[in-house]
Write a protein that binds this DNA or RNA. Structure first.
Lengths: 209, 209, 209, 209
DNA sequence: TATGAATGAGAATTCATTCAT
DNA sequence: AATGAATGAATTCTCATTCAT
């Protein structure tokens, strides 16, 4: 793709390279143990370059958090929007949507993010706002919207769609930390689908019209 | 504050003082940012004393995790055992038990622990096992037992009590991270009770006989 | 030997136990790396006991150095005194004596001492005096005396017996550091005898009447 | 001394400055007591600079040992190569060469090294190999070569030149530890020459043709 | 803009030594 | 005389950050 001989990809957007490299490092080691040195090495960039682009380790971290949160959010919202509310398919679609939504948090990056948030929210509460705005609220909103549709269609009884959305997610995840051992063990898609399904079924028993 | 000037309390049990001091430090700063220096200062103890008692920062951390986990577990199990399964009171008792159980995780120490676990489980997976054995499993067991009693009494339909227990907890906590902002903001007891009640009601709709 | 049941040997002379334990520790690790803790553990004694007996690590070290030096000196002087100066046997006896003398420095303890002296003489020049008086001078004296006898007997031409003694030792040891790799590798007695013999032969060519 | 006030010599080669500063510190205090802090102070360099250049205290030490060993070796080999083997001058030249060779080990740096080797060879046997290859073997080789020449010229009887070289050195040094008190006291050149001469004379009596 | 080289601040850990018992 | 428990001081080493080029 490039004709430049010596240096590998001098034209590639350095900013992005740094972010891509930061992901695994932050994810595996957490904020504190992740050294700017390691990120610079992984990005094949010198440390000052990182500082000129992001200002500080903290800011680099926040940008990364925002980026991953947005990506997770996109995946999750897409999953919700794929929820078919037609009378014939909505039950299966609900399981599928919940599964996809849960799996959006099971990317390597996203799992790292989830763990890291908990770790760092004490130090920097602002991070909570970032993730909430970028990832959490939009998903709840989208899911609440679909549940409201199902309510309007007389398929569910949903007096408080936002609460219902939160509960649906909570039920879908109820067994997940157990089987994935807090995200440290990989979990196969069929297993995830099965435990999510159990949660959705409980949800349906509670909310079905 | 006391009149003894030089060495304050030489007879006090040092080990406990260290553990007590370690809690807030680990909780507020996380494992990495928590410095042994800070813990020593907080415990009014010298650093070598910490090392002679616990061997390393890591081991001190694990002992602290274990201690808090056990305490949380005790509180939570006590809450579950207080659940009155008599036909007249069980509904209110379920809300109370779920609330107490959730609040057992809202001590300062426990909240710190919850956040820290997520943060450090990647670095040291063993920590997951410690918490699971000390705190998670016994609570699930106890709660599953009570739900099974309610099932036997014909009050609930509970084919899988363990699953039901996990779901009851998940529903009780469904709104908690939102309102406590991941445990960074204190939350008043009435508020907690209200959101837990919403979760329990959904649970009942799904499981009532 | 003892009837005391619980504690192993409470009556045994603690001072000696400490010295016996200090030897290997100082020898293997050198003065700096040898920790008083390790010595106390090896001697099955508490640290304060060491301090009450010896005052400080430094003083313990000097006592140990003196003890080993004296022992080496005794062995070496014994070897020299065993030197038969009769006209028929003196040649073979000279090789034997030189070998024994050299081997007196090849005990575990003595080798440790030799290495340690070099290490610590810069820090504490007094140690040189200790070893010199305890071990070096008496041996040179004794050997010079025997060589003088051989001179008086007309078997050697020894105008300066002290110089001759130093040269005999130097020649006997000429190859030793090479083959024992500075005392780190064990060396079999026959090998030692052979290289010492080579040195003694050169000595004889230079000094024979 | 210069008028530039703030940062003294930023262009000076840091690596060399560190090595130069490490010499006296290692030499006077030995490996263990030599603190990286002290070396950094002496080199007017910050600690991390040392670590970025050498990786660890241990590696810095080894580099220093290697450097000094090479320098000693160069001086000593030069001394040997200056040995004039012509029938008229070789006797005096032998004394001169032996003296220079011995004095090559009496630089401040070299004396430090000699002491330090003994001290640390127990901890890290590899150091023995470093010194042997860098300093010991080349000198023995060179001296053995010259002695063989003298043998071929019929001036000496040297069946085993390597052994003879070792013995010549041993004899030259026979009195040195005594008068320099293990290298702790400075010794004037004439004194060194005198004691070396005594050794060489004994060597000649043994080996002269 | 990108970097190699440098640094101040602070991390965990160990040690010789000393009380109180 | 002997000890368990404590500590001040020092150790090696790492990190985020910044110059000079």
């Amino acid at each position: 793709m490039s004709t430049a001989p010596a240096r590998p990809r001098p034209t590639t957007d350095r900013r992005q390279r740094i972010l891509d490299a930061a992901g695994p490092v932050f994810g595996e080691h957490g904020y504190e143990r992740a050294s700017v040195d390691a990120i610079a090495r992984a990005a094949q960039v010198s440390k000052p370059t990182i500082y000129s682009h992001f200002g500080s380790k903290e800011q680099l971290f926040q940008v990364w958090v925002g980026a991953v949160a947005r990506q997770v959010s996109d995946d999750a919202v897409r999953a919700v929007h794929g929820l078919d509310v037609s009378p014939k398919k909505w039950r299966a679609a609900l399981v599928t949507a919940a599964t996809d939504l849960v799996e959006a948090w099971h990317t390597d990056c996203a799992a790292s993010l989830a763990r890291t948030i908990n770790a760092e929210v004490g130090r920097d509460p602002q991070i909570y706002a970032v993730v909430r705005e970028a990832a959490h609220d939009p998903v709840i909103e989208a899911l609440a919207g679909r549940l409201a549709m199902l309510g309007n269609a007389g398929l569910l009884r949903v007096p408080d769609p936002v609460l219902a959305a939160k509960q649906l997610i909570a039920l879908s995840r109820a067994e997940l930390d157990d089987i994935s051992e807090f995200g440290t063990k990989p979990t196969s898609a069929p297993v995830v689908r099965r435990v999510v399904k159990a949660g959705v079924e409980t949800f349906l028993r509670a909310y079905e019209a």
